[in-house]
Design a protein around this nucleic acid. Sequence first.
DNA 1: GGGGCTCGGGAAATAAGAGT
DNA 2: ACTCTTATTTCCCGAGCCCC
Length: 284
Amino acid sequence: MSTSLGEQIIARTMQAGLVTDRHGNHWQYHSRSDHHSKTACWAIMFDLLRSCHLLRKHAAEGKIGFGINHELRDFRVNRKKNLDLVVCVGQPLNEPKSSLAGYGAEMGIKLTAAEQRELDLLPELRRGTVSNVHLALEAKACMTEHGKARPRLYDELASSFQAIHGDTNNAIAAAFVMINTTEKFASPSSRNPGRIRKGSLVFNAHKQPEVALKVLEKMMELPRRSDEKQAGFDAVGISMIDCQNDGSRITINDAVNAQVSPIVRYDALIQRLAHLYATKFSSI
DNA sequence: GGGGCTCGGGAAATAAGAGT
DNA sequence: ACTCTTATTTCCCGAGCCCC
């Protein structure tokens, strides 16, 4: 199997600026939209299918489905929580736009010709109905105001692995966090209200790479577990991304990514999830 | 002035209502 | 019954504000 493609797909798709606000402005990233997290989930699901033979087998046999914004119920505290991405057992929905490929097209996911060919060769994975969860992933982004976002990011992620394990004991719990590494960022809404005129964007300044690394540091404090008896995430992935949100190029920041611990890089997230899936669900 | 708590803006999703 | 419009709900995360 080749190396992962997801980060490039995320950057390329976001760069297209597919979010339109109520003033008619097009944004590459908008905090009030969930397009970026859906894009990330799609890319991760694609990479997982590419990387895990058992997942492909289960998909081909129609044993599993995927879900985006899937509701989980934590029985211990009886609260519900929506997870960004889940892989679950169950009846696939039989709708035209319900395959991973169809969903990606609908979302405007930007693939290269080579990636599209790979997607075409994969077995069809369909959106599934609510059922036994095998794997659940929560995706978060931190694009600006890094310092202020840290406590909230941490709390939201910490509550999500609890919800995953509260719903299904042996489900794989994962987190993916995108952190912006540019020194300026055009923030939609209050900092840039109304219709944007050309050249009139207001930018937030970031002290980089310090602020991005501070968020990384906080994310490294998230509980991670190596076996089911412990509490924590089974896998965490962090991607450093360059996004000024002004229409300019969006890229993966390899220099800052190199400062991320190898165990939480995007590639490691995929590898770890693929491995966990293969070992945990070999007998279904 | 740096760090962190928390409120609420606003897009998307969903539900409800209205018209054909 | 089906489509189109409008109201309601959900939920993500930016940033105001308070504290040290």
